[in-house]
Structure formats: C-alpha cells, structure tokens
C-alpha cells in the first residue's frame, strides 16, 4: 500500500503545540505532492496477539479501522442470510444479499490493499446482543451498524492524508449511506436522513469514540490508541 509516514500524534503528547498544529495540516503538504515528513521510526505497526488487536498508526491504522468496520458489517449480513429470521420477505432477502456483497467487496478490497499491514482477516465476532431469529433485532442492528459505519468512515476521511485513501473511503461511505437510508426506511418510512444535522450534514464520528461502540462486537479487544486524533 501507499506508505504515509508522519509522526503519530498520540505517541508525542509532549510534542510542542506548534508541531501538532503543523501535523494537523499536513494534508496541505500531501496535497502539494511534496514529501515533507519521513519519520518511519515513529510509525506504530498494527499488531495482534491472543487478547488485543492494535490497529496501528497513520493512514495504515485508519484504513485498518475502516477494514474492521467492513469486517463487522460483512460478517453481520453473512449471518443474517445464513440464519434468516422467520418471515423474511423476498425483497428483504434481496436487499440484504446485495448489501452483504457490497460489504464483502469493501472488506476484501481493504484486505488486499493493506496486505501485510492489515489486521487479521475474519476476526471472531461477539453476536451475544443480537437475536438473529428476530426481525426486530436484526433490523435494529443493521440500522446501528450502517450508521456507525457511515459516521466512522466520514470521521476517518477527516484524518487520512493520502488522496487515494480519502477518495476511496468516501466512495465507500456514500454506499454505506445508501444502505443506511434503505434500512431506516424499512424500519420507519421517511427516516432515511434522520441523522442529518442543521447543516444537512451527516454527523461524523472520531475513531476513538467510534471504536468504543464497535469493539463489543468482537471477541478480542480492539485498540486504536495510536490512531491520529481529531
């Protein structure tokens, strides 16, 4: 994958404010196509042990978080279709099937792109809060996962540095937003854009708080402490 090497902000809490400011706007430099920071020693590589998945730092870490979100969504819809709730209509099945395929593509794309920098594939999920036999439980979680994914991807878009990462994640997020709108309308017609704020904008979410609400769906602990911060 494209290597983006800037200092990780978290590991440099004591860094001077001016440098943090500078890093906040490092995108300006990337946009100008100039290599201004190459500090590989400060990169934190993603790691996985028996207990914890560490997403890593920089764009790699952010893409790993996107990968985690897409793993979660793909695994969810695979399970929904494997153990369909009673009374699933043909239309519902068709919608879930296409959404599942999109999420698999998102997941596999990030897997291939990240290569050896990626977190492990097929992380085991904790579905204990979901009753797959119950339509209401499945729909509620589909709504939740899609909203979390759109807000999370948009938050990642704020932080990534490389243009191709930004564009690809945004292209992915708008399709997750389409999913979210459909799921919302299936639950309560007319709620397709209920989360838009007073500027007609999605409310994006920073990775730290996004991870806090998604990690309970994984058996291993997930940490994003080295990710860039808002």
């Amino acid at each position: 994958m494209k290597e983006v090497t800037t200092q990780d902000q978290t590991t440099h809490e004591s860094a001077s404010l001016s440098r943090r400011k500078f890093l906040n706007y490092a995108g300006v430099i990337a946009g100008a196509g100039l290599l201004i920071a190459s500090c590989k020693k400060d990169d934190v590589q993603p790691t996985a042990d028996d207990d914890t998945i560490n997403l890593g730092s920089n764009d790699t870490g952010l893409l790993n978080y996107a990968y985690l979100l897409q793993q979660l969504e793909a695994a969810f819809y695979i399970q929904v279709l494997k153990t369909p709730y009673s009374g699933m209509t043909k239309t519902e099945e068709g919608i879930f099937t296409q959404i599942r395929d999109h999420e698999i593509i998102h997941r596999e794309l990030l897997k291939n792109y990240l290569g050896t920098d990626g977190i492990p594939p097929a992380l085991e999920n904790d579905w204990s809060s979901i009753d797959f036999s119950l339509k209401s439980s499945v729909m509620a979680k589909a709504k939740f996962f899609e909203e979390v994914s759109v807000a999370g991807l948009n938050g990642i878009c704020r932080l990534v540095i490389a243009e191709e990462h930004l564009v690809t994640l945004a292209k992915m997020s708008v399709v997750d937003a389409r999913h979210s709108a459909v799921i919302n309308d299936m639950i309560t017609p007319g709620t397709f854009a209920e989360k838009a704020d007073d500027n007609g904008m999605e409310v994006s979410q920073d990775p730290q708080s996004s991870i806090d609400i998604t990690k309970k769906f994984f058996k291993k602990n997930i940490t994003g402490i080295y990710l860039p911060k808002y």
């Binding site: 906040n24 706007y25 995108g27 300006v28 990337a30 946009g31 100008a32 759109v150 948009n154 878009c157 704020r158 932080l159 243009e163 930004l166 945004a170 997020s173 708008v174 399709v175 997750d176 937003a177 389409r178 999913h179 979210s180 709108a181 459909v182 309308d185 397709f192 854009a193 838009a196 500027n199 007609g200 904008m201 999605e202 409310v203 994006s204």
Partner: peptide, 22 residues
C-alpha cells in the same frame, strides 16, 4: 483534500446526498 474541515463537511454532505438518492 488540503482542508480537513471543509473536506469533512463535503463528505458529510455527500453521504446525506446518498441517503436522498437511496
């Protein structure tokens, strides 16, 4: 790209547009 705030605003409007489109 070069402006984190504006690019986030645009992403957040893009996904709202996607909801409308859907």
């Amino acid at each position: 790209l070069s402006n984190k705030a504006f690019r986030t605003d645009a992403v957040n409007m893009a996904t709202t547009n996607a909801r409308h489109a859907a």
